[in-house]
């Protein structure tokens, strides 16, 4: 009798554990990591292909990130070469050769097409947003948690995000970026065909982010992430005083 009771309790415990959802913070932390967020040091290249009113543009950047800081340098086209975007947590700076002082800019400003400045750096949703799991949903046969993210501060890239995170791999699958009033500004989907070695393990890393304007679906941008690799960066690399000199 005692044995049966023990097994019944054990089954109940296991059953509860298997259906309990992870916390929103854990999901965001894991999904951020595969988008370059809060890693000790990482480098990757990006190509932003923009289609705006039928006009197609391509721009390349090299990104170095560490924790909440990132240094983004334009590499092509030639006219933009040498331009730098520096992210110190939520503060952002733009510098270019010949500019006497750095320009303080906002993460919300559009950088190219539908991609905002904040989209090109590493993602730190866990630090920038308060998340809440609202429901579960199947996206293309994949089970996901749907999170509602609300900005903790005014200077983050978006006021609200609806974020679909794969319930098994904890990777962000899809996002809707919303205004303060809840109106959808743009939609994004993510692909993870890159891998990085993180603490001795190979983890998937974002390879493409497709952003589409919610109102004008012809206006879209595709950010392709290439050559991601973990590498140590000195803190001085992200110091505006050093970058400016």
């Amino acid at each position: 009798m005692k044995t049966r009771l023990f097994f019944s309790i054990l089954c109940l415990v296991f059953a509860t554990t298997s259906v309990a959802a992870p916390s929103a913070d854990l999901l965001l932390k894991d999904s951020d990591r595969s988008r370059g967020g809060n890693l000790k040091g990482i480098t990757w290249d990006i190509e932003i292909k923009t289609e705006d009113d039928g006009e197609v543009n391509t721009r390349d950047f090299s990104v170095k990130a560490k924790g909440v800081d990132a240094l983004v340098e334009a590499t092509s086209p030639a006219r933009n070469k040498g331009e730098i975007f520096l992210f110190n947590d939520r503060a952002m700076w733009f510098l270019k050769p010949g500019l006497r002082k750095p320009v303080s800019i906002s993460a919300r400003q559009k950088l190219s097409g539908q991609a905002a400045n904040g989209d090109i750096a590493s993602t730190n949703y866990v630090g920038d947003y308060d998340g809440k799991i609202t429901k579960t949903e199947k996206i293309d046969g994949v089970d996901t948690y749907v999170l509602e993210l609300k900005a903790k501060a005014k200077n983050v890239t978006y006021d609200q995000i609806r974020y679909w995170i794969n319930s098994t791999s904890h990777l962000g699958v899809k996002a809707e970026f919303l205004t303060l009033q809840g109106m959808i500004l743009k939609r994004a989907t993510f692909e993870y065909n890159n891998h990085i070695n993180h603490e001795g393990q190979s983890i998937p890393f974002v390879s493409k982010m497709n952003i589409i304007d919610a109102k004008f679906s012809k206006n879209k941008s595709a950010i392709t992430y290439m050559n991601p690799k973990e590498e140590a960066h000195p803190a001085s690399l992200f110091n505006i005083n050093n970058v400016n000199r």
Partner: peptide
């Protein structure tokens, strides 16, 4: 009296001048 002007230019690039 020095400032920097920044904007998104007609080519869609971020641009700045002294």
């Amino acid at each position: 009296s020095n400032v920097q002007l920044a904007t998104r230019n007609y080519d869609g690039d971020f641009s700045a001048v002294n």
